[in-house]
């Protein structure tokens, strides 16, 4: 079970959080201009990376705020947590 650093509340146990998967998937500006396959990429397709991954978490049993984690899916190491408006923290050098 991770310890997650909520950018608003500080470090808390994972049990206080929920995730909705990959972060930085922006809803298309004008969906009507997309073809079915492009729209499907937004709705269903994910990078599902083995390695450093940016994902969206919410402090659901806490402040209720959404934020992003930079976490390594191959080791579960967490490199950074940041608010949606923050600049992207860089990927750590080590691959795992």
């Amino acid at each position: 079970m991770f310890i997650i650093d909520c950018p608003w509340c500080g470090t808390r146990d994972q049990s206080e959080f929920t995730t909705h998967g990959e972060a930085h998937i922006t809803r298309p500006e004008d969906p009507e201009t997309l073809d079915d396959a492009e729209w499907a990429q937004y709705v269903f397709y994910r990078n599902n990376v083995k390695g450093w991954y940016r994902e969206r978490w919410v402090h659901s049993s806490g402040c209720g705020r959404w934020f992003n984690l930079l976490r390594n899916t191959a080791s579960d190491a967490i490199a950074a947590s940041y608010r949606p408006e923050d600049p992207l923290p860089p990927l750590p050098e080590d691959s795992y």
Partner: peptide, 13 residues
């Protein structure tokens, strides 16, 4: 669990 992980280790919770 509902987070992506390739570690073959789930959360105790």
């Amino acid at each position: 669990d509902n987070y992506v992980s390739y570690t073959q280790r789930g959360s105790f919770d």
